[in-house]
Simulated scan of single mutants.
Amino acid sequence: MLTKKEQRLRRARQTRIRIATQGVARLTVNRTNLHIYASVISGDGGKVLATASTAEVEVRNALGGKGSNVAAAQAIGKRLAEKAIAVGVDKVAFDRSGFAYHGRVKALADAAREAGLQF
């Protein structure tokens, strides 16, 4: 029987295989109990182009230490979209890493779309 983490990673593997065939940059999300992390990774070489997380000092200060709520996820989505557009990436594939598209993951995706990223 698979553990909860193994089930999530199995779902993530399927998504990454599908995204790899598209050859576009991917926006990955990792969610923990305390923080949310997001990165834009290039489609060809797998290079990290932009990152944002609630563990960053300036973000943590702006949020008042609360990095595990929907408001924090929205801030990270907006910040990541701005960074990605600054390096010339505007189209991405959303890689939710096996997490349900709900709550913080959905808030991050919606905020990134509003800030100009196209999924």
Rank of each mutant, 00 (worst) to 15 (best):
G88T: 06
R8W: 06
A93S: 14
A100N: 12
L9S: 10
A71Q: 11
G88P: 05
T21R: 14
K66N: 12
L108A: 06
F119E: 07
V24N: 04
F119Y: 12
G23A: 11
Y37H: 14
L2A: 13
L80V: 06
G67Q: 04
I17D: 05
F99L: 10
A115T: 08
F99C: 14
G77V: 00
A38F: 07
Q22T: 10
L117I: 08
A112F: 01
A100E: 15
K83N: 02
R104G: 02
E82M: 02
I36W: 03
T21W: 06
S68V: 04
Q7E: 15
L34E: 12
K78E: 15
Q22R: 09
T54S: 14
A84T: 07
V48G: 10
S42K: 02
T54D: 02
V48C: 14
F119V: 10
K78L: 03
E56F: 08
K5A: 13
R31L: 14
R79D: 07
K4I: 12
T28C: 11
I19Q: 00
G65K: 08
N33D: 14
K78G: 00
S53Y: 05
A71E: 12
D95K: 01
T32P: 05
L108R: 03
G67R: 01
R104A: 09
A112K: 00
A73Q: 04
D44G: 08
Q7K: 15
K106C: 07
T3A: 14
G46A: 10
